[in-house]
Design a protein around this nucleic acid. Structure first.
Lengths: 248, 248
DNA sequence: CGATATTTTGATCACCGTCAAAAACCGTGG
DNA sequence: CCACGGTTTTTGACGGTGATCAAAATATCG
């Protein structure tokens, strides 16, 4: 399995696909030039670990291409995903030198890594970077809190519908399309990863996806590709406020 | 039911009980003086709402005394708590004028409120404040992620044990004691609020608390006061790593 | 095409939710 | 101090949702 070939210039931040959404979104040319001195790209194959909880991590990073997960595992093997990192999301925590959670590449993954110390110093004297990181962290906290409602209170069917709707919206946003009826996209997760995302078993995930397909809420092309005939119908299945209003 | 009498000088930040832990922790005297021009205290009785999801909120605030919750409610009444705000925790989000979640005082509560606009301007030109807020937000995100493991993967008994251990630790930290064997404290939540915290019903909460009492893991004095004869035994019941090591 | 991983489907069971009622607790006032 | 009403908590009986164990079917990749 090969590593995705990257269609951007690794030297210059100007051509970076996440240039205007990542932690460096508001940097000027001079600041980018400084960042370029401390950055390196790293790539991981789908399924490979990036770091284990408790490991020292000598870098922080932005996801450039691909999808990574944060997860926790209990002694007896029960696993819960606690974060889903898509392109432009930030990995690592300034001021802490160890990872708190297991980090795994679930698709082929490219990270733009900054050496920790220089980056922290850069942040300290570049307030708009830490302000941008604050914004991103607050967004992640809001997302985590929506996720908590899903984990704590929704039925298996509602969980699946919610996950599909969340991924569809993010996917549409990434392509700068609206998530209109008929929208189709690829699920970046295996059934097992979905189960770990939703606090279910993979069997239950499979059953509920089949049920939603039987009921015409979604259509499948192969195992990974999903079409949404009617977003309204899908939203109805999530159990959320009917008027399409996003809770957060 | 009366509002708690406050044993601190409402004018001067110097005597504030959360002075060195809140968002203003690293402010100097001059900065505090400026904050004092934009702050007001507000008090709420136990059980009263502070704000509803979607409401415009003209202030951000620090919790000074008491406990508040953030929660989401579905159309059919299912409720999930998604945040527990203790003294020094921050409420509200700079750059957003509406609350994303229902905010409720669960004990008598005192907030130190800052008018939004002046506070945002203050933050923009005082980098260490937004850096402090970033730190606090990252801590909250870590806590939310531990909470997600509890919601998604733990059994009812493990959930109760985890909640008791979390509250015990925070309570001990607040009193600057270690959480030693025999430690006793007050649960600031009703059984129903605990159920909303843990994604359970209040009946299940009650049954599991009774079971832990029967098994000698906890001792109760009345309904709210808890004693922990052995922290190791309690930790064992949480399902977390046995070696007392905190997961995050 | 064959080997391995992933997904689906089936049968059974346990945990926790639901509905219902009793008990304990709490503040108020006689 | 005790009687009273309302709230909170406990306990009980039962059923359903999702977990578990098992095996078949499908997809993926060498």
């Amino acid at each position: 399995m090969g590593i995705a070939n990257l269609a951007f210039d690794r030297k210059s931040c100007g051509s970076c696909p996440i240039r205007h959404r990542a932690v460096c979104a508001r940097c000027n040319d001079e600041e980018l030039a400084e960042l370029e001195t401390m950055k390196t790209y790293r790539s991981y194959e789908a399924g490979q670990p990036v770091a284990w909880a408790g490991d020292p991590l000598e870098f922080v990073a932005s996801v450039v291409v691909g999808v990574a997960t944060l997860s926790q595992t209990m002694e007896d093997g029960r696993t819960q995903m606690v974060g889903l990192l898509l392109p432009s999301d930030f990995l690592g925590r300034p001021g802490r030198d160890r990872v708190a959670f297991d980090v795994t590449a679930v698709t082929d993954l490219t990270l733009c890594c900054f050496r920790r110390k220089p980056f922290e110093e850069f942040m300290a004297r570049t307030p708009h970077v830490s302000q941008r990181l604050l914004e991103m962290t607050l967004d992640e906290l809001d997302a985590a809190r929506e996720w908590m409602l899903i984990l704590g209170r929704k039925t298996a069917r509602e969980k699946i519908a919610s996950m599909i709707s969340i991924i569809a919206r993010r996917e549409a946003a990434m392509q700068k399309k609206a998530a209109t009826d008929g929208f189709g996209f690829e699920l970046p997760l295996t059934r097992e990863a979905m189960a770990n995302y939703l606090g279910l078993t993979l069997e239950t995930v499979s059953r509920q996806i089949s049920a939603l397909r039987r009921d015409g809420v979604i259509a499948l092309e192969g195992n990974r590709r999903v079409h949404i005939p009617s977003f309204e119908a899908l939203l109805h299945e999530t159990g959320d406020d009917s008027d399409g209003g996003m809770p957060a």
